[in-house]
Design a protein around this nucleic acid. Sequence first.
DNA 1: GCAATCCTGTAACGGATGTTACATTTTTAA
DNA 2: TTAAAAATGTAACATCCGTTACAGGATTGC
Lengths: 243, 243
Amino acid sequence: MKEEIDLITPCSANCEYCFLNYTGSLIQNPLFRGIDKETAGRLIKNTRHQVKKLKKGEIFAHEGDPVFNLIIIVQGTVAGEMMDLHGNMLLVEKRTVPQSFATAFLFGKKTSYPVTITATEETKLLLISRQDLLTLFTQSSEIMKNYLDTIADRAQFLSGRIKLLSLPGLRAKLAAYLLELMKQAGNREINLPHTQQELAEMFASTRPSVGRLIRELHAEGIIGARGKKVTILKVQKLKDCIK
Amino acid sequence: MKEEIDLITPCSANCEYCFLNYTGSLIQNPLFRGIDKETAGRLIKNTRHQVKKLKKGEIFAHEGDPVFNLIIIVQGTVAGEMMDLHGNMLLVEKRTVPQSFATAFLFGKKTSYPVTITATEETKLLLISRQDLLTLFTQSSEIMKNYLDTIADRAQFLSGRIKLLSLPGLRAKLAAYLLELMKQAGNREINLPHTQQELAEMFASTRPSVGRLIRELHAEGIIGARGKKVTILKVQKLKDCIK
DNA sequence: GCAATCCTGTAACGGATGTTACATTTTTAA
DNA sequence: TTAAAAATGTAACATCCGTTACAGGATTGC
């Protein structure tokens, strides 16, 4: 990782890795919201950057590695995972086009990856160094505002996750999670966006425990559960679980 | 809260609430790092702002209230707390001079307080609205960089907290917490910065459970505990607790 | 269409930890 | 200094949930 910053060189127009192949993905990135394709192209062209290709399963960065660049996903998917001292994985989150990562860890006292980043399929990333990003900010206050928004969203997400994890007991966490999903969906019928395995990891629990709890809530008539489709039958009872 | 943004008016030099009374605290704020007193004074003077006084126990903002301003603490202490649906408090964090808050929630999709903010003593706050802060950034890229650093630090903090909460079981959380403190202190002798009650809240657990666990670790010869002073005796055994 | 892989359903057992209650010590405020 | 409040020590009991194990069902990839 150390020498990564040196690898970034201006991209020639006919380079196989040229960002021009990905402007479509790029302008969908929140960082370029409100900015048209030509402007974005011009800004990036004048900014040092690098396109990096990852094979499926390849590790891009390890937990603790220093962060030198903003990384925008232009193709594929990556997963952020943290592992405990014995190598057990705790899935944190997946990211895909047109998201970025390392946004919140490019600055601050300790600029290092909090999780290990792995490509879960063939993936291409656009890298922009911290210094060049700052320059970009001075050229476009739109991008600066967008970047602030991105970090803020990230902090919101983390904060919500903490709120969930802070609840005492698995039952409370699952209840809060379901209620949150219901609020988002605006509907009592939910499609679970995660597998039980993933839920267990989110809740710092285990898969059988999560499964059992879903069964229990079902047996108590609080929810209806058929596969990934869940219907909230008794909202108040579910809220009481959070006590 | 809605009309707060309208209340911010330029501060006259002889105003009782003038920021000039607090420039000493202000320039200690990370936002003004590397900026001298005169420059900071000039920048603030040209920026719309407001000083707000809070009595002890007074609530500044409720969870879910919209965030309009950056808030810099120039005197006193505030606590950020989230409560569950039954009103039980889960202490999150205290802040005091020269820190700020709402930094990570001024921007993004959902700009609302994730926690309820309460003054734990007589407190004075300096408020700067989002729009004026953006203007400030264009006037000083130093401040912009400092602000990015502040948010990044915040995300780091939240991320670390999640990592702790993601560990399965109280024993693992306490072990990880103690090891982290040891790393920070660079010493096997630690002064616990929290009460058992606060630890219990951090770990989404209960006070007697935390107390018992400390006793157990003590009985097992893994730590020495006398009041708030803790000595790590067997580092490896403590790491094994995290398994 | 088949195999391999992942996800899910289910159950017995035991241990970790939440609950409740009260005494004791320490800190804070008056 | 003294009273009040907060923090801590401790114990018995109940229970949630982690562990382990296996089988059936669903998806994916070839």
